[in-house]
């Protein structure tokens, strides 16, 4: 009996030593990504980058266990359970359903969950309305820089009054972005006219109904609409209504301009938060962050097509992109 106690004591001592001398420790980070998607992939790239900048380098002192649930919430839950059972040091959850599953599984075990690409952490109850966190959970939001986008549209189309927005009724991200647009649009003299769709197949008909009513359209980060962007661009070109994008990839495809966020950058910011948590800070006390600066992307070919010129002051900071 005494021997067992002694062995246990030694073991506890050793364990406490390793946590004191965290220098030599290897951290395991479970990464749960909700779907295969360019922007989400970029988040993970940025996340690794951000951690590496803080001295947490993959292959040296960090091991990533990456899982993708392919848009299946049941699998997302099992992935979260797997990470919790493996007692990882931290879970990085990319996109809302993954973040919710991870928090649900990890909450009682005090494994910190760092999320990214969650458009509205408050609506998802991953953050309180007063900015506090419900537990060891924090991260970054990819809420659109709506204000900047509205200023952009005002600058490029001084005469415009009505902005059209196409959105999928089953995407929560779109709901909250649309709500923000509705609230802020009057400040810039705009009215928002929206059309909801349920599948990509509805896009042509919805656009035909929407385009005659508006001066231009602007995209959200709506997955269904973005996937069908070529259709949107073609029909809008025929109707002579420019399309504004919500991120760089859309401008490459032919949207005239976008005040967008860059997902690698978002991931990097998330990586910095994760590093603070790995060093011992409590995730519960770190408020979630929005991306600080939006970047202006323009597509000159598309601008010329609609005869729109970019004012000097905007041109100075604009990044010109073309189709890959």
């Amino acid at each position: 009996m005494k021997k067992i106690f002694a062995a246990l004591l030694a073991l506890t001592l050793m364990l406490s030593m390793t946590s004191v001398f965290a220098e030599g420790k290897t951290y395991t980070i479970g990464v749960s990504q909700f779907a295969v998607h360019g922007s989400l992939d970029n988040c993970f790239e940025g996340f690794k980058l951000g951690l590496a900048e803080e001295g947490f380098v993959e292959g040296e002192n960090v091991v990533f266990d990456f899982e993708n649930s392919n848009a299946d919430t049941g699998i997302a839950a099992q992935i979260a359970d797997k990470f919790v059972n493996a007692n990882v040091d931290l879970i990085c959850a990319i996109a809302t359903p993954s973040a919710m599953s991870a928090f649900n599984a990890a909450q009682d075990r005090n494994i910190p969950v760092i999320y990214t690409a969650v458009s509205d952490p408050v609506a998802a109850q991953l953050a309180g309305t007063d900015g506090t966190n419900p537990g060891e959970v924090t991260g970054t939001s990819d809420a659109l820089p709506v204000e900047a986008q509205l200023r952009l549209i005002r600058a490029l189309q001084p005469e415009a009054t009505k902005i059209g927005i196409l959105h999928t009724t089953s995407e929560t991200n779109s709901d909250s972005s649309l709500e923000t647009y509705r609230q802020l649009a009057p400040n810039y003299g705009f009215e928002i006219i929206d059309k909801g769709i349920s599948t990509g197949a509805d896009i042509p008909l919805a656009l035909e109904a929407l385009l005659p009513l508006v001066d231009c359209t602007t995209n959200l980060t709506d997955n269904t609409v973005v996937q069908s962007l070529p259709v949107v661009l073609e029909l809008s070109a025929v109707a002579g209504k420019p399309v504004y994008g919500s991120e760089i990839e859309q401008v490459k495809l032919g949207c005239i301009a976008s005040e967008g966020i860059e997902y690698v950058e978002l991931g990097r910011q998330t990586g910095h938060i994760a590093a603070r948590v790995l060093r011992g800070e409590s995730a519960a006390t770190i408020p979630f962050e929005l991306i600080e600066n939006s970047l202006l992307y323009i597509n000159e070919e598309a601008l010329a097509q609609f005869g729109i010129t970019v004012p000097e002051e905007l041109l100075a900071r604009a990044i010109t992109v073309t189709a890959d």
């Binding site: 809302t96 359903p97 919710m100 649900n104 998802a124 109850q125 991953l126 009724t169 995407e171 349920s198």
Partner: peptide
């Protein structure tokens, strides 16, 4: 039912963390 589910829930995702 897809439409009905969306309308019952009010939105595509309803959290119960609260």
């Amino acid at each position: 039912l897809y439409s009905i589910n969306l309308n019952i829930a009010g939105k595509a995702n309803v959290p119960l963390f609260g």
